[in-house]
């Protein structure tokens, strides 16, 4: 008999279940399979009613994030062989409301992303004839890391503050704000600081640091938040010492 491995998967069908519960599936074990392959095997051969999100299967789209043995992971990058002998626990991302099975609601996440104005804002927009806004490689380098985010939300599922404080803007959104703050073409750092200088923003963070640990793209949201705090603190200090300065 070919080897198999067990998956304990959370099932929640709102029309039938009061609360989520585990269901166990036995799937073939293959060295080159990831958890997502196993889930697709379940869907194709064992139970077509299992719901989950995925798309690219190569760590680019950010839609396949789930808790694998309690850790937030991209299931398309989580090998079965790294979780032997099983059973492997597969749950929807922590702290998000569960819509169905492994699918979570991301409305709040999207609202938080847009809250930080993640686009280039200029005091004066040049007409197209003037040409593009130029940027040196060194200038690009200052924010490049923070621009790699794929919105997989693993960092949210890793952060206890997200669970404790539903309004907390969260790691990816603050990293994204920092990405635009550090962009030499952008001029709205002050606006974003205002939006984020409260307990739902940077000051709610206690630097647990797990967001950075789980991020598959090495965005380092924890670093972004701490650096943001430093900027915010220096800004507050400046406006205290020079109250007549530009506000």
């Amino acid at each position: 008999m070919p080897p198999t491995i067990a998956l304990d998967v959370i099932r929640y069908r709102p029309e039938r279940n009061e609360e989520p519960s585990f269901q166990t599936y036995e799937v073939p074990f293959r060295d080159d399979w990831v958890v997502l392959d196993a889930l697709n095997y379940i869907k194709d051969w064992l139970d077509g009613s299992l719901s989950f999100r995925w798309s690219c299967r190569m760590g680019v789209c950010g839609s396949c994030g789930m808790m694998v043995n309690g850790q937030p992971k991209l299931t398309c990058a989580a090998y079965l062989s790294d979780h032997q002998p099983g059973p492997i626990r597969v749950e929807p991302l922590n702290y998000f409301p569960i819509v169905r099975d492994l699918v979570v609601d991301i409305t709040e996440f999207l609202r938080k992303l847009t809250k930080v104005k993640p686009w280039i804002i200029r005091d004066q927009v040049w007409p197209v004839e003037e040409g593009e806004y130029r940027q040196t490689p060194a200038q690009l380098d200052t924010y490049r890391q923070f621009s790699q985010c794929i919105n997989c939300m693993l960092c949210y599922a890793a952060c206890p503050i997200v669970g404790l404080e539903p309004e907390f803007v969260g790691p990816a959104a603050i990293a994204l704000a920092q990405r635009y703050n550090l962009d030499s073409r952008d001029e709205a750092a002050k606006q974003r600081l205002k939006i984020l200088s409260d307990h739902a923003g940077i000051w709610g963070c206690t630097f647990v640091g797990e967001c950075t640990q789980v991020c598959p793209k090495h965005v380092d949201p924890a670093g972004a938040i701490q650096q943001f705090k430093l900027t915010g603190a220096l800004d507050a200090l400046k406006s205290l010492l020079l109250p007549w300065g530009t506000r």
Partner: peptide, 10 residues
Amino acid sequence: TERLTPFLWI
């Protein structure tokens, strides 16, 4: 408290 937070953080 919101206004004090940056200083407390320093």
